[in-house]
Amino acid sequence: MDDRRWNRDCMVTLLAAGLLLAVVGYWSLQLLPPSPAPTNGAPAATAAPVAAVDAKAAEPLVRLLSPGAIRTEVVVLGVLAGTQAPLALLSLDGGPAEAYAPGQRLGPSTVLAAVHADAVEVEQAGSLRSLPVPVLPPLPVDGIVPAGGRQP
């Protein structure tokens, strides 16, 4: 084996090991909490201050960890009830209206159980709730509705 090659390989290995040690040392200083400064005889405070938690940012994690604790707000906007493929037009937690079929999951612990002409049944955290379908305004006698939706 050539001596120069051994020296070069040894130097590269030592350089890589030194670089690895430098990186590990740097990140250990960055990630570990600083040691408490010595005081003149007084006991050091051991409790670290609690960081403020943004409730809006933590909501998805709370929903994931405790699905029964947060209920999904379901608002019924309309239904297409029938025997073939019933659908419900729902707004979830104030969001835009979307169509859902029975059996579809609406939230972490909310499932659309059934769609009827006058009500929508929602199973939420193990309990069945019946939500009424809003009543449509009566049609005019002649059957024509003006463009603004107002009747003369």
Rank of each mutant, 00 (worst) to 15 (best):
L77M: 12
A125E: 03
P108A: 05
T110L: 03
R105H: 07
L139N: 12
S66T: 02
L64V: 01
V76P: 10
A101D: 05
G126Y: 02
A57I: 09
G68P: 04
G41E: 10
L136D: 13
V133A: 09
V50K: 10
G126N: 03
A97R: 06
A37F: 14
P138A: 10
P67M: 00
P146Y: 01
S127I: 08
P134G: 14
N40W: 13
A99S: 12
L128M: 14
R71H: 11
L89G: 05
A125S: 08
G143P: 09
E73D: 11
P86W: 07
R150G: 13
G148R: 13
G94Y: 02
P38E: 07
G107M: 05
I70K: 01
A57H: 00
V79R: 04
S109P: 11
V115E: 02
P60A: 01
A58M: 15
R105Q: 10
Q104T: 11
P132F: 10
L64H: 14
A97W: 03
S130E: 09
P108F: 06
P67T: 03
L64D: 13
R105L: 09
R63M: 04
G126V: 07
E123M: 05
A44K: 15
T46F: 03
V115G: 05
I70A: 00
S127Q: 15
E59H: 09
P67H: 06
A55I: 15
A88Q: 07
V141L: 06
A101I: 03
A37Q: 13
A52G: 12
P38G: 07
A48V: 14
V53P: 07
L77S: 02
Y100I: 08
D118W: 06
S127A: 14
V53S: 10
Q84H: 09
R105T: 07
E59T: 10
V133I: 15
A45Q: 13
P96V: 04
V141I: 12
P102D: 04
G95L: 04
A37I: 14
P43C: 09
R105P: 11
A42E: 11
L90E: 02
L136H: 05
V50A: 14
P132T: 05
A47Y: 06
V141W: 01
V120L: 00
P134Q: 08
V53A: 10
G68I: 03
P86L: 03
L112H: 06
E123H: 00
